[in-house]
Design a protein around this nucleic acid. Sequence first.
DNA 1: CTGTATCCTCTGAGATACTG
DNA 2: CAGTATCTCAGAGGATACAG
Lengths: 126, 126
Amino acid sequence: MSQENLAYTPSACRPVTDVLSLIGDKWTVLIVMLLADGPRRFNELKRMVNGISQRMLTLTLRNLEREGLVNRTVFPTVPPRVEYELTALGKSLKAPVAALGQWAHANQLQMDLARLEFDKKAAEAA
Amino acid sequence: MSQENLAYTPSACRPVTDVLSLIGDKWTVLIVMLLADGPRRFNELKRMVNGISQRMLTLTLRNLEREGLVNRTVFPTVPPRVEYELTALGKSLKAPVAALGQWAHANQLQMDLARLEFDKKAAEAA
DNA sequence: CTGTATCCTCTGAGATACTG
DNA sequence: CAGTATCTCAGAGGATACAG
């Protein structure tokens, strides 16, 4: 990416902003990481992600499918069976997300301490 | 925000969601990238980020400061002058974010096409 | 089992006005 | 200049019920 100041206005930074608004929601990254191990069925995912509502799982999956990150396969059996799996594009997202994960893991403690310190000072000021 | 309610949280995944809830908002990444070049004053940032409100810039900067990614320095002059700059921790975030940015840039077209295709089929079905 | 359809709540975020 | 204080609104996300 360019280092020029003007390059980072919202319009010029649209790709990054777009991607962040895609994966920056509450569940998307979690689903992508779960699918990284292989195809999963709808309720299988629902059980794995404790706390997600049926609605949000559907919406998250639909959105990923829409962006071409996930393939949805319906098996016309009774009862119906639907499998979700990452596309090649979806799999390629694993690397940068993992990089972010490593950063997060490595610096979590520092951020926790900074937050405690900040809140402590804020409390003292009040 | 914490994700303590997750039943299944692979080690590579939990920190990511945490960090995404930090940087996944509308302006944070933009500000971090702007500060990557060096310290900036409040209104300087405001001018650079076209479209941000005073309130959101304040909130974004406060949050970054709270997490230890940004240092805030007040110069007791008249008129007041406040400079923001990345901490070492903040600077270390540049690399993984840039990785994500490169991925976004590299795959934007694919995602656009996938979206068009998806919407086209949805329209046909309706 | 895999979804849709509603309804409802709460938060993110813009606009505006005021202050040291 | 660098913020705070309110007000407001749209949309994200949860709960629940229904459907193929």
